[in-house]
Design a protein around this nucleic acid. Structure first.
Length: 755
DNA sequence: GAGCACTGC
């Protein structure tokens, strides 16, 4: 996909060997250094002679750590259904283990036409893609043939594929149509320590599947300490450890707790630059604003030191940074200002992205203030939010490891050793304990898991979170009162969207506006930050402008008056006074009408990448609609009902996210009665009595973001089961709704009398 | 008139 960020995947620099070939080489004696190609052996997988390149790679692979444990591994695999394999960074497990397995397992299936496969899951798309490419190269086969990958929007595999790398979410999707995962002989869950939502669901699912499929084998691969926990969970599965390959990293703690970690981090950077030998610095901070602020301050402070010190290149790094800017982290440190002068240094200031997703070579010093932003979920108010929280010991360990990739390094932890030992939890809470589980529960139901309370989660979510999820799905009509999946729920579960979004999409043909709802769903689901940016072209900061100018959504103009004016005009062109959802629709329509032209996007402060991604999602959604014979339709644009139908359709999914304007001038969320404020990025020109909100953000105040004006009458018409006044807290909204219900009754009465 | 850890289908 074109919107993919280019990333250097850490696994990529680990190269191992193919055991099969190693064996052949051994048994053929002279083959090890037979490089003339003419009498090469035949590749078992594609029947072609091995290339020279194959042998070249093979030589390098022979030296890697995991290679020495191959026979042990295969022995254990033969005797057990499940294995836990622990390998630190650099062990080569991701590229190698699947090849070991491939060699040892019989892939013949009862259906002779097609072989069974080995699956290896990854939490991230880029990893699935790049690792599979690497392995195809090692095996001397064409990517997409014998070795392939499968990620959202791209299935690069064929009937010949025997080894497939895929995202964990993708394997979960496959399980929805193939509950026993019958096309796989062995499933390898890689990076299991990351405990993504999908990996955790797969844990529980596979535990069940293993009971029903004695021929299936499972390998759980993980990087850290939690191996014993995995072992216990999978019925005392045997544990294997593979050493990693890291240089030693010296850890330093502060004597006393730091009051201001940002200030302390900057001070530490300056000290390293003044006192420590050559080597680049990586600083972990929590978010974009903090990072840009730190970059400015570091540049300024080191600038103040004059030319007694070497020059520095300070580079920010976070996920919403455009790819071109992210590439800067791979540029070398600046050369000395004059020949023989003090050397330069690169200083990368990054979010957690540098902890797992991205590897920067040449880092010798890591500064770890001990915080990161983490998602937390409060089921009581059904709100997911981001909070700056202390990291875990495992996270601290991972961060310090970033200093030792190319040579021995140093890690400066900006907290005390006592605090490390006593205050930090061993592991970050798995995502499943920090999320709204409505979507997960829908997936589990579709997978045939009826009894969620007794489902064997490795870490069971709070009962309240599960109850909340069941309740939401019941209100949406995806589950009946007994908690069974309805026909509607079946269809909803097929969409890669949140339940509210899939509900509004599935019912949109009834409101005669599925074309428009498709576009809005795609825009909303691309990413939340894009939504915000779409709505909000102006940013006041100065030094960040450069970086933000290609951020999703609008381009951010420089501080000049003209640029701000131009951006304002662009916003006015697309803005819809009835709400942000409709503004999104306008932007999407304008984008299509202008033939998806990147320069049109640029001129109109619209982000091309984000829109291209939305378009891609939309196409996928259209295919799913077709599968269920959901018709694509629109109300006549000139009809008064055009926007009304769209708004009603959105309400059909989002009736649980409504706020009411009180006499006092404040908004209260319906039923929860939380005081909220319209996010200033909204495009409304008035304060509607009732609004739908897409997102609840807790920052300086309680904001509702991406809002839409709706009518109270629609609430009682479209969602009477939710606006059932019997179960309603006393409040202004209730009194208004009571009036609306009475009005509705009167209307009915009049109609009856007329007849 | 505010300020977005990171993924994924």
């Amino acid at each position: 996909m074109g919107t993919e960020r280019k990333r250097k995947v850490s696994l990529f620099d680990v190269v191992d060997e193919t055991s099969l070939s190693a064996k052949i080489v051994k048994s053929n004696g002279a083959m090890g250094n037979n490089n003339n190609g003419g009498s090469s052996l035949i590749n078992r997988w594609n029947g072609k002679p091995y290339s020279q390149r194959y042998y070249d790679i093979l030589e390098k692979r022979k030296n890697l750590p995991v290679w020495h444990q191959k026979e042990d591994f295969l022995q254990v695999l033969k005797k057990n259904q499940a294995i836990i394999l622990v390998g630190e960074t650099g062990s080569g497990k991701t590229t190698q283990i699947p090849q070991f397995v491939l060699e040892a397992v019989d892939l013949e299936s009862p259906d002779k036409r097609r072989k069974m496969m080995i699956a290896c899951t990854q939490p991230r798309r880029v990893a699935a893609m790049s690792v599979s490419r690497r392995v195809a190269e090692e095996m001397d086969v064409t990517i997409g043939e014998e070795v392939g990958y499968s990620i959202r929007f791209e299935d690069c595999s064929s009937a010949r594929t025997v080894l497939k790398y895929l995202t964990d979410g993708m394997l979960l999707r496959e399980a929805m149509t193939d509950p026993l995962l019958e096309r796989y002989k062995v499933i390898i869950l890689d990076e299991a320590h990351e405990r993504t939502l999908s990996t955790d669901v797969l844990f529980g699912l596979l535990k069940e599947v293993l009971k029903n499929r004695p021929d299936l084998k499972l390998v759980v691969m993980s990087a850290t300490l939690e191996a014993e926990k995995f072992q216990g969970y999978f019925g005392e599965a045997p544990l294997m450890k593979v050493p990693g390959r890291l240089h030693p990293v010296e850890i330093f703690y502060t004597q006393d707790p730091e009051r201001d970690y940002l200030e302390a981090a900057i001070r530490t950077v300056v000290q390293i630059h003044l006192c420590e030998p050559l080597g680049d610095i990586l600083v972990f901070l929590t978010g974009e604003e903090e990072i840009e602020d730190a970059c400015r301050k570091i540049t300024k402070e080191i600038g103040n030191l004059g030319d007694q010190v070497g020059p520095v290149k300070v580079v920010p790094l976070y996920s919403t940074l455009p790819p071109a800017m992210q590439q800067k982290i791979f540029e070398p440190a600046p050369p000395p200002l004059q020949e023989g002068g003090p050397s330069g240094r690169k200083i990368v200031v990054s979010t957690n992205i540098a902890e797992t997703s991205l590897t920067i070579d040449g880092i010798v010093y890591v500064i770890d203030p001990g915080f990161s932003k983490q998602k937390v979920y409060n089921p009581r108010v059904r709100v997911e939010s981001l909070l700056v929280s202390p990291i875990s010991k495992a996270s601290a360990h991972q961060r310090s490891g970033r200093a030792g990739r190319t040579q021995p390094g140093k890690c400066f932890r900006l907290y005390t050793e006592k605090s490390f030992n006593q205050d930090l939890q061993p592991q970050t809470y798995p995502e499943i304990l920090r999320s709204n589980l409505a979507n997960t529960v829908l997936t589990l139901k579709k997978l045939g898991i009826d009894d969620l309370v007794h489902f064997d989660f490795m870490d069971p979510p709070a009962p309240e979170t599960l109850m909340r999820a069941l309740e939401v799905l019941n209100y949406l009509g995806a589950l009946d009162d007994e908690g069974n999946l309805t026909k509607l729920g079946e269809i909803m579960s097929e969409f890669p969207l949140d339940p509210q979004l899939s509900k509004m999409l599935v019912v949109s043909p009834e409101f005669n506006c599925s074309n428009e709802i498709l576009s809005i769903s795609a825009m909303l689901s691309v990413c939340m930050y894009a939504v915000k940016e779409f709505m909000c072209p102006i940013r006041s900061s100065s030094a960040t402008v450069l970086y933000g100018s290609h951020a999703p959504g609008w381009h951010v103009p420089s501080d000049s008056k003209e640029a701000q004016k131009a951006a304002d005009e662009a916003k006015a062109r697309f803005g819809h006074i009835d709400g942000d959802h409709l503004t999104l629709l306008n932007v999407y329509h304008a984008y299509k009408q202008n033939n998806e032209d990147p320069s049109w996007c640029y001129e109109n402060f619209v982000n091309h990448r984000a829109l291209k991604a939305a378009d891609n999602v939309r196409q996928q959604l259209v295919r799913i609609m077709a599968r269920f014979n959901l018709k694509l339709c629109s109300t006549d644009f000139n009809s008064r009902d055009y926007y009304i139908n769209i708004r009603k359709s959105i309400l059909a999914g989002y009736f649980m996210q409504v706020a009411h304007l009180e006499q006092s001038g404040h908004y209260l969320t319906v039923k929860d009665n939380q005081v909220v404020h319209l996010h200033p990025s909204n495009c409304l020109d008035h304060k509607p009595e009732w609004v739908i909100y897409n997102e609840y953000v807790l920052t300086s105040r309680n904001y509702i973001r991406t809002v839409l004006d709706i009518r109270g009458e629609w609430l009682v018409d479209i969602a009477p089961h939710y606006y059932d006044l019997q179960n309603f807290p006393q409040c202004e909204a209730k009194r208004v709704l009571e009036k609306l219900y009475r009005k509705r009754e009167r209307r009915k009465e009049e109609n009856r009398n007329r007849k």
